[in-house]
């Protein structure tokens, strides 16, 4: 029981860490591109690089950024739900 659980947790954590980092980098890169395009099309005043950096700082504080942490929460919720439905219903 304990050994199996530990093995499951290690595998799940390793997988979730990879997914978390890849998603974070990807999402930030997409945000950076969008901010650049926004400056090109709408703002067009001031420093483009500064505009992008400022936008990225806002993004780092945003809810959207924190939603990526769901990568660690959702699988455990699904496991919990499955254990309940499969065995205790």
């Amino acid at each position: 029981m304990i050994l199996g659980l530990i093995r499951l947790n290690i595998a799940a954590l390793a997988l979730m860490l990879i997914v978390y980092f890849v998603l974070s980098i990807w999402s930030r890169s997409v945000r950076r591109k969008k901010l650049g395009e926004e400056w090109d099309e709408e703002v067009q005043t001031g420093d483009r690089a500064a505009y992008v950096e400022e936008g990225l700082e806002d993004y780092d504080q945003s809810l959207r950024r924190k939603l990526i942490l769901g990568v660690f929460v959702v699988p455990y919720l699904v496991i919990g739900l499955l254990v309940y439905v499969m065995n205790f219903q």
Binding site: L5, I79, L82, M86, N87
Partner: peptide, 15 residues
């Protein structure tokens, strides 16, 4: 299937 693969998390074979 316990905590292993496939992830059915079936612990209740006796039941």
């Amino acid at each position: 299937t316990g905590w292993g693969w496939p992830p059915y998390f079936k612990l209740d074979s006796s039941n």
